[in-house]
Simulated assay, not measured.
Amino acid sequence: MSNVFVIDSFYQPLNPVHPARARLLLKQGKASVYRMYPFTVILKRVVAQPEVKPLRIKLDPGSRTTGIAIVNDASGEVVFAAELTHRGQAIKAALDDRRAVRRSRRQRKTRYRKARWSNRKRKQGWLPPSLESRIANVLTWVKRLSRSCPLTAISMELVKFDLQQMENPEVSGVEYQQGTLAGYEVRGYLLEKWNRTCAYCGAKETPLQIEHIHPRAKGGTNRITNLCLACEQCNTAKGTLDIAVFLQKKPEVLKRIQAQAKAPLKDAIAVNTSRWLRFV
């Protein structure tokens, strides 16, 4: 059970108290509710020389959620614990929707809109808005908690994921150093991987196009695991359809393609990118 934060009438943080003690202070009229979450009460007097115990805030960062715990360094007691949910995925989805709307607007038969992407430069240290949101979310809550309790130290778990080892646990040696596309370009690698045939209909000896298994319009990426080869007819017929819908009459083909397409590593990449940037 998390304790209740206490501040005096000068907004000076004091030692957190047990919820029963906080209820007693409120019942006796010695304090009032200052904030609902994290639940904080404010005393109706000033504490001249408070004897506060130093507290440490600990962070366990993640892509979707971040664990927060405030502990007493002397006794090891957990004073406060919470799980912070991030909006990174929602921000990414909103930006994808906006991009699709703007793309369709440019393609409609409306007045000519001059290209504007060539006059924009990214500043040094630029991060995607979804990652900035995660970092700002953690910083906001650390500052908010520091105003409610006497924090003197901070600790954060520096997690790092080996993406290549996650994709292929057996990789080692020179193969690990070179990576998947060593000696190839993307098109050449896909031609070898898909045996120069259409992934959907198996057509050979025909011009092949690079196709996104999970459509870009629905959040698909350009990762090599999301790419395959398709003839023009299959590529046009699939369009932005989900692969399960497009191949619902060919379950064996769907199973084969899904076996080659691996799960995305968005969450691991998000943690790796932002691990050193939260308090720099």
Rank of each mutant, 00 (worst) to 15 (best):
M1L: 09
N3K: 15
F5Y: 05
V6Y: 14
D8S: 09
D8T: 01
F10K: 12
Y11H: 13
Q12W: 04
L14I: 09
N15Y: 04
N15P: 12
P16S: 05
H18T: 13
A20S: 11
L24K: 07
L25M: 13
L25G: 11
L25A: 11
Q28F: 02
G29M: 07
S32T: 08
M36Y: 03
P38L: 08
F39H: 06
V41F: 12
L43A: 01
L43P: 01
R45C: 08
V47S: 11
A48N: 09
V52M: 01
I57F: 02
I57N: 01
K58W: 06
D60Q: 03
G67P: 03
V71M: 14
A74R: 15
S75F: 02
V78R: 10
V79H: 01
V79E: 04
F80V: 01
F80H: 13
G88P: 00
Q89V: 05
K92M: 11
D96M: 02
D96H: 07
D97T: 08
R98A: 11
R99N: 06
A100C: 07
A100Q: 15
V101D: 12
R102M: 13
R105Q: 10
R106T: 08
Q107R: 15
Y112M: 02
Y112G: 05
R116N: 10
W117P: 00
N119D: 13
R120S: 11
R122N: 08
R122E: 04
K123L: 15
K123A: 09
Q124I: 14
W126M: 12
L127N: 00
A136H: 09
N137T: 09
W141Q: 15
K143A: 15
K143L: 15
R144K: 13
R144S: 13
P150H: 03
T152M: 06
I154W: 10
F161Q: 08
E167F: 07
E167I: 06
E167P: 06
S172H: 14
S172R: 13
G173R: 09
G173T: 03
Y176S: 10
Y176Q: 13
Q177N: 09
Q178K: 14
Q178E: 12
G179I: 09
G179S: 12
T180K: 15
A182G: 06
R187T: 10
G188S: 14
G188C: 06
L191T: 06
E192I: 01
N195H: 11
T197F: 03
A199T: 11
A199P: 08
Y200V: 02
C201V: 02
G202V: 09
K204G: 13
E205K: 07
L208G: 04
Q209G: 10
Q209C: 09
E211N: 07
H212N: 11
I213Y: 15
I213V: 15
P215S: 02
R216T: 03
K218H: 08
G219V: 04
T221I: 07
R223H: 14
I224F: 06
T225I: 01
N226H: 02
N226Y: 04
N226D: 06
C228Y: 07
A237N: 02
T240Y: 00
L241Y: 01
D242M: 07
V245P: 00
L247W: 01
K249N: 05
K249W: 00
P251M: 00
E252L: 08
I257M: 00
Q258G: 01
Q260W: 04
Q260K: 03
A261Q: 10
L265W: 03
L265K: 10
A268D: 12
A268E: 14
I269H: 10
T273F: 06
W276Y: 13
R278S: 11
V280Q: 12
V280G: 15
